[in-house]
Write a protein that binds this DNA or RNA. Structure first.
Length: 480
RNA sequence: GCCCCCAUCGUCCAGAGGCCUAGGACGCUGCCCUUUCAAGGCAGAAACGGGGAUUCGAAUUCCCCUGGGGGCACCA
């Protein structure tokens, strides 16, 4: 089995494309075949290096490795279509010579007009085949005389293309609705249909796994392949990803670029796990599984036919699951840079040690890596900023000031500054004051962390240290 | 307009004629745990789009309708 992922670098790697890449990869790794990465960069207008690199980085981030192609090389020369223009022209020439393709001199304006007319009359809107009737010799001389012409495939009519799609089953297209499409543009460059199909044949691709948007182009690709004398690959068309409104996932649903997820604090493992669930299932009612387990069970024929809505909430939940599964060191390594970026300076050695003690506490309360700075910022800054809502809700209560004052008193006399001692002295304080934990401890939390939501209080106090903790409590008292 | 694809809780998936009083997950609601927030535990609300047909029996098969999606370029 040989499959390929062939993005066109005309945009950032989209989550939909990432899913296509993942399903290709899963199928290949399951079967033990080869995964080829190719760049379908025949669109000079819209393509760019930035997009090209974004695609490669995205695949690497997801951990979808390939065996041949871009950056890897392989037995087929270049894996960039822009390097293979002569090959496409060669194939077009062969089809021309064999009478399976012909020159078309119709101008874009004429085509446009006839298309509109056909549509208005309820006829298929495709090219009407006018130039197909031209005498080949005459066409060639007009062409040689410098007249602009495209090369079109002479689609056999009547006829029908039938193929067995792995996810959809038998699919058939009557050639009545497959126009004589363009192979080579008037400037000699190949269209996507030609280039992609020639490459699939040349690179001996056996399985083409791609989006449903290409389903109706498949007869064109099969026609080219057989005209070349090659065997068509097996196709698997994946339904598309939708936004929450049921419309095709696009910019208006927010950022659909894969790198936005990387930057947004998502773990690639979680992303992969979640996306695999869009149109596929692990069986056994399991939703969280490892990459190896996924590869073991994956089968293209199990893929769901209907479009799936991309649910950010479930992705975030999944991400939380994976964050909690990270081992402590890994979690620290991944979050320290985010915190340093937030406080705009490197952590000191002492701070790093402190962070090591609180990291497990915040690890279990996060869905996104990017939430780390908010959780621990109070440990790293001098001027605490109080959350206005928390202040209002907690510190303006009558029991707030007495609790803080009592805590200052108790903690000031505490011997060793450690969680256990802090807890017992504060519990004593609660008892003496006759208030419950909620009322008595929340003011301390806000005074010390700036917010009514924070990591556990006693541990936070220990991490903050005696001096700074007491200073913050006194400061809050003063403000009150 | 023409062609193609699809159709189970709000969402993602189970379900391939009786095992379905339709199962799991996210989200949602309630309770428990609890120093806040999470996490965790327990409970709950929540779906077979409609109509025909086949069958003793249909979420599962067939047809029509409706709805949704995709495509119809010298873009990919």
């Amino acid at each position: 089995m040989r499959a390929r992922f062939a993005p066109s670098p005309t945009g950032y790697l989209h989550v939909g494309s990432a899913r296509t890449a993942l399903f290709n990869w899963l199928a290949i790794r399951h079967a033990g075949g080869e995964f080829v990465l190719r760049s379908d960069d025949t669109d000079q207008e819209r393509g760019s290096d930035e997009y090209y690199h974004d695609v490669i980085e995205g695949l690497k981030w997801l951990g979808l490795d390939w065996d041949e192609g871009i950056e890897m090389g392989g037995p087929h020369g270049s894996y960039k279509q822009s390097d293979r223009l002569v090959r496409y022209q060669e194939v077009a020439g062969q089809l021309l010579a064999a009478g399976m393709a012909y020159f078309c001199f119709c101008t874009p304006a004429e085509l446009d007009e006839r298309r509109k007319q056909a549509q208005a009359e309820g006829r298929p809107p495709g090219y009407d085949g006018r130039c197909r009737a031209l005498d080949p010799a005459e066409s060639a001389s007009r062409r040689d005389g410098g007249e602009a012409a495209v090369v079109r495939l002479a689609v056999p009519r009547p006829g029908v293309t039938v193929f067995e799609d792995i996810v959809r089953g038998e699919v058939r297209f009557d050639h009545e609705h497959v126009e004589d499409f363009v192979l080579l543009r008037s400037n000699g460059s190949p269209t996507y249909h030609l280039a992609s199909t020639v490459d699939d044949a040349d690179y001996a691709i056996t399985h083409v796994v791609r989006g449903e948007d290409l389903l109706s182009s498949t007869p064109k690709h099969i026609l080219i392949t057989t005209a070349m004398g090659a065997d068509p690959p097996v196709y698997a068309h994946l339904s598309l990803l939708m936004g929450p409104d049921g419309k095709k996932l696009s910019k208006r649903h927010g950022d659909t670029a894969l790198h936005a997820y990387r930057q947004g604090g998502f773990l690639p493992e979680a992303f992969v796990n979640y996306v695999a669930l869009l149109g596929w299932n692990f069986g056994d009612d399991e939703t969280v599984f490892t990459r190896d387990e996924m590869v073991n069970r994956f089968d293209l024929s199990d893929i769901q036919k209907n479009p799936a809505v991309f649910d950010n909430d479930k992705l975030a939940w999944m991400n939380g699951v994976y964050i909690r599964e990270l081992d402590r060191e890994d979690f620290i390594t991944r979050t320290v840079p985010l915190i340093e970026a937030d406080i705009d300076r490197p952590m000191t050695a002492a701070e790093t040690e402190t962070y090591r003690t609180v990291a497990p506490l915040i690890q279990e309360r996060m869905k996104l890596l990017t939430e780390a700075p908010d959780q621990v910022r109070f440990l790293f800054i001098d001027e605490l900023e109080y959350d206005a809502g928390s202040w209002e809700k907690v510190l303006t209560k009558p029991e707030a000031a007495p609790a803080i004052a009592a805590a200052v008193e108790k903690l000031g006399n505490l011997g060793e500054w450690a969680t256990a001692g802090i807890e017992s002295s504060l519990r004593d304080m609660l008892e003496e004051l006759g208030v419950n934990a909620g009322k008595g401890l929340q003011p301390l939390r806000v005074a010390v962390t700036g917010s009514s939501v924070s990591p556990p209080l006693f541990e936070s106090l220990e991490a903050l240290g005696r001096e700074r903790s007491l200073a913050r409590l006194r400061d809050a008292l003063e403000r009150l």
